[in-house]
């Protein structure tokens, strides 16, 4: 079981969170009209074997979206920050 250190609530079990998505993909600006940019955001992933930045939602806690660094091969967990504090 993963345990995630929410910057607001502290160290909590995985079961309080839901996994969001790859946090590297960047949502295009609202007025972007190029479909390829949207396809890249919605469908295509690097899917790395190793370090990964990803969104988690502390859905049964503070309801903040977090950016967690985690290794997809070892499941080792690194830094966890509030998504709103991570620069675009």
């Amino acid at each position: 079981m993963l345990r995630i250190k929410c910057p607001i609530c502290g160290l909590r079990d995985e079961t309080e969170f839901t996994y969001g998505a790859d946090a590297i993909v960047r949502r295009p600006d609202m007025d972007e009209t190029n479909p390829q940019d949207w396809l890249n955001y919605v469908f295509y992933r690097d899917d790395p074997k190793g370090p990964h930045k990803e969104y988690w939602h502390h859905v049964q806690g503070c309801r903040q979206w977090l950016v967690l660094e985690r290794n997809t091969l070892s499941h080792e967990i690194g830094a966890c920050r509030l998504a709103r504090e991570v620069p675009k």
């Binding site: 309801r63 979206w65 509030l82 709103r84």
Partner: peptide, 10 residues
């Protein structure tokens, strides 16, 4: 969850 995601990330 989607609304919160958009507001907190994009």
């Amino acid at each position: 969850a989607l609304g919160e995601h958009l507001l907190q990330t994009a």
